[in-house]
Amino acid sequence: MSFSSWVRGTRLYFHMVAASIRAQMQYRYGFFMNILGWAMSYAGTAVTMWVMLYSFQSLEGWSFWQLIFLFALAVLSWGVCVIFFFHFRSLDQYILNGTFDRFLVRPIHPFFHFMAMKFDVGAFGQLLFSIAAVTLAYIQLGLDWPFWKWGVFTSAVIGGTLIQGGILVLISAIAFWTTRSERFYWVVMFPAKSMMNYPLSLYPRAIQWVVTFILPFAFVNYLPALLLLDKPHPSFSSYWGAFSFAVGLVFFSICYQIWMMGLNRYKSAGS
């Protein structure tokens, strides 16, 4: 792709994003309730964690604020991910009611076009909650990170966005074969994501392996949190947490390729 087409693409993306925001602003009350709602539902989980640790003090050696940090780190990148990719889960709806075809009769890249369709401002609620929670945890835990740890933190947020975005892209790609995707989000990704709000070491070894090497959820929050909170990893070096960004990049591009494969299959098979 040439430089000018990148410029054009970027400009177009911002135009479409602005349109999407205006569309969501149409329901003004809903716009704010949506943001507030997301923030509240995550605060709810944090309260649950607090209640849980009230009688038990710690979970697998994680104190309440460490747990909050782990959780908020996941929510932070999930928030960014929701902004860009959350609507991918409902690709099945677009395919079933035929509106997906519109992405194929326009002179722009279908993945890009579909991605630009929605810019989910509701996710500002997640960002609001997670930034507040990370900040509080940082203070409560008396953390004082050197520069490189901020790098690890940033890499975890970007990498986490790419990993979770990748999984959403993967889920949406399933729709090209089975005309179903949203259900997979609720049945597989939502519970899996909930599990990752707690320290990975809780779960059997097999699961730890799957989320480290196959669906790399571990790089979203658990591995970087170990490094950032100076906790040892039960079996690997704690420096694994520094590679979230690289893992995210590789994983996302694989998922993107699978999506494009799905698109080709859609083009040859129809729906």
Partner: peptide
């Protein structure tokens, strides 16, 4: 292309905005 049963316009936006977006798209 016009598919009679499904609109290609942006559902939640004032109609004019769909035209402006298409101006950018094309």
């Amino acid at each position: 292309v016009v598919f009679g049963q499904r609109s290609q316009l942006w559902w939640d936006l004032p109609t004019i905005e769909s035209f402006e977006l298409l101006k950018q798209v094309y």
